[in-house]
Computed example of a mutant assay.
Amino acid sequence: MRLVGARLSPGSDTFIAELTMKDGVEAARILTDLETFWASPAAALASYSSEGGTVVPLDQLQLVPPVLPGARVICIGLNYLDHVLEGSYADAGLPEYPTLFARWTSSLTVSGAPIPVPSNEDGIDWEGEIAAYIGVPLIDADADKARAAVMGYSAFNDVTSRRAQKLTSQWILGKNGDNSGPLGALVTADEVGDLRDGLRVQTRVNGEQVQDGNTKNMIYELGEVLSLVSHSFTLKPGDIICTGTPSGVGYSRKPAWLLQPGDVVEVEIERIGTISNPIVSNSLRSES
């Protein structure tokens, strides 16, 4: 099942809806409101009927991330060895524990939304990866329980302002630009399978492939990371963990290659889907 966040009009309540077709046109079947869904995703999906609910053409909806405003968005940095080796962290060696940083939900957006280049950046960088959604509370969970708690996945682009990221040892400033975190449709875990079995992760800029990785090559496995986090704080339904990017980012190239206004960046994840976003000038930031 492929789910999206949707509003009937800007500023109205957010619903969770299933992507479908109506009279040969892309549409969404309204499932329930955002808060009810994330109170118990399993119950919401169990009560779902593909024959019921209101079906609305996509062009009559505003698509938004299917994310609670108060959700935690936790990102894993440096989770593919080839990405570690291509950057400025290669000489430091692999830490015992993953590097984690946070995004605010206000930085998230959807496929198709414009991503502005901040005024103090030479450009912005791509990081294609997979976002995983928590479906049940996790407290002091082992890796098996944590892995089973993932109810779905999205394609994600952790678009990064490199100059801001490197001002200090803390990455949050460079990882929370306006509209800098596009998410694709939420694909339920039963359609995706186990990331340890391998999913291809690709990124393209203006049609040219710039990243081509596989989740088999993750350093820190998803279940293990979720277990680690759950021993520090409770993970709740709707929280998200973004699993890191493979090699091929722009800043490590010689010369560096960063996204500029007019570019289009795509992230394609096997069995999950593709997102595509145009890059725009900072002057359009208030409109994005």
Results as ranks from 00 to 15, higher is better:
177 G>W: 04
207 G>C: 09
272 I>E: 07
258 L>M: 09
68 L>E: 09
104 W>S: 11
124 I>L: 03
256 A>H: 05
270 E>S: 03
39 A>M: 12
199 L>W: 11
236 K>C: 07
223 G>D: 08
31 L>Q: 08
50 S>G: 15
116 P>C: 11
87 G>W: 01
80 Y>P: 13
6 A>E: 09
48 Y>M: 00
201 V>H: 11
129 E>W: 13
115 I>Q: 04
31 L>P: 01
115 I>F: 09
56 V>R: 10
208 E>P: 05
283 S>K: 08
161 S>V: 06
231 H>A: 03
273 G>C: 09
147 R>E: 13
219 I>F: 02
234 T>R: 10
64 V>L: 10
79 N>G: 06
82 D>Y: 03
27 A>K: 08
205 V>L: 15
173 L>G: 12
101 F>M: 02
220 Y>Q: 02
80 Y>M: 03
215 T>A: 10
247 S>V: 06
169 S>M: 14
115 I>H: 02
269 I>C: 05
130 I>R: 10
138 L>T: 09
163 R>M: 02
235 L>I: 01
136 V>E: 13
173 L>W: 12
136 V>D: 14
43 A>R: 15
11 G>F: 08
69 P>R: 07
201 V>P: 08
229 V>W: 03
242 C>F: 00
100 L>C: 08
266 E>I: 12
25 V>Y: 02
56 V>K: 08
73 V>M: 09
262 G>L: 01
64 V>P: 06
175 K>T: 02
171 W>P: 05
196 R>C: 10
150 V>N: 04
258 L>G: 13
225 V>Q: 00
200 R>N: 09
264 V>Q: 07
234 T>N: 04
238 G>S: 03
248 G>E: 08
61 L>K: 11
174 G>I: 04
131 A>K: 02
81 L>D: 12
149 A>L: 11
233 F>G: 05
244 G>I: 00
39 A>S: 15
285 R>I: 13
132 A>N: 08
106 S>P: 03
73 V>N: 13
223 G>T: 10
143 A>E: 14
140 D>Q: 11
81 L>Q: 14
65 P>H: 01
65 P>L: 00
122 D>Y: 10
208 E>M: 07
201 V>E: 01
116 P>L: 13
69 P>C: 15
155 A>H: 08
41 P>F: 14
42 A>G: 12
243 T>C: 15
139 I>Q: 13
48 Y>I: 00
271 R>D: 08
267 V>M: 06
179 N>L: 06
131 A>Y: 10
5 G>V: 01
109 T>Y: 00
69 P>M: 14
54 T>Q: 15
197 D>M: 01
92 A>K: 15
55 V>D: 02
166 K>E: 13
210 V>F: 03
66 P>S: 00
204 R>A: 05
206 N>P: 00
159 V>S: 04
144 D>F: 02
46 A>H: 13
274 T>R: 13
277 N>H: 00
35 E>W: 10
105 T>S: 03
38 W>M: 04
102 A>C: 11
